[in-house]
Simulated scan of single mutants.
Amino acid sequence: MTNREGAKQSCLIVDDNDEFREVMRDVLLSADWEVEEAVNGDEALQKINDDGFSVVLLDILMPQKDGLEVLLELEKRPQSARPRIVAMSGGGSKVTGSLALQLAKGLGAKKLLLKPFSLKELHEAME
């Protein structure tokens, strides 16, 4: 996918599930996105600091630093220095996916995807 200036859009996929990241990477690459991956919030923040991304596809419930912690860190930055966040969650043992996503929305996530989601929902969220 390209932006208005014709440059490829870039996405960072942040999820602790290797298979899920692989599927998302393949889908986004086929839609002409530049894609990088991170397995947790710490790695995501490092990559966000090193490279600018158009969009961060961010799992909310992960071990180590989770997506909510990433959002809290990004909230400290000026609006112009924050990537657009598409939050995703399927829930966990202590919280539902819907609740996790509502928390993410309150912390600045622009789009919400409840796992499992369709390819159509993914493409719409990435626009």
Rank of each mutant, 00 (worst) to 15 (best):
A87G: 00
D16V: 08
E22M: 11
Q102L: 12
L61G: 14
D66V: 07
G108A: 01
M24P: 05
L28Q: 07
L107G: 01
E127P: 05
L57A: 09
R82W: 02
K105L: 00
P78K: 08
Q102E: 15
D42T: 13
R77G: 03
E73Q: 11
I85G: 04
K111R: 12
Q64D: 13
S118P: 04
D15Y: 11
K111S: 08
A104Q: 00
G6I: 06
L28E: 06
A7K: 15
I85S: 04
K94S: 15
L101R: 01
N49V: 09
D42S: 11
L61E: 14
G90K: 02
G97T: 06
V39R: 13
N40Y: 10
E75D: 13
D51Q: 13
D18L: 12
Q64P: 01
E34D: 13
R77A: 06
G108E: 00
K115L: 02
I48P: 05
V35P: 03
S54C: 09
L103K: 12
G106W: 00
L119Y: 08
S54Y: 10
S30G: 12
L61V: 14
L71T: 02
D26F: 09
I85R: 02
D51I: 09
L122V: 06
R25Y: 10
V86N: 00
S80A: 14
A7R: 15
D51N: 13
M88H: 15
L58R: 07
I48E: 04
L29W: 10
Q9D: 10
Q102P: 02
V86S: 00
A109D: 03
A109W: 00
R84F: 01
L72E: 15
E36V: 08
L119D: 08
E124G: 08
M126Q: 03
D18Y: 12
S54N: 14
A100N: 01
G67A: 08
F53P: 03
L12Y: 07
D42M: 05
L113D: 00
M24I: 12
G91A: 07
P78I: 05
G108H: 01
S93E: 15
Q46G: 13
A81F: 10
N49Q: 14
W33A: 03
L72C: 11
D26H: 13
D51G: 09
L29A: 14
S30K: 14
S80D: 15
E127F: 05
V14S: 07
R82A: 03
A100P: 02
N40R: 03
V39N: 12
F53N: 04
R84T: 10
M1W: 09
C11K: 06
E69D: 12
L99I: 14
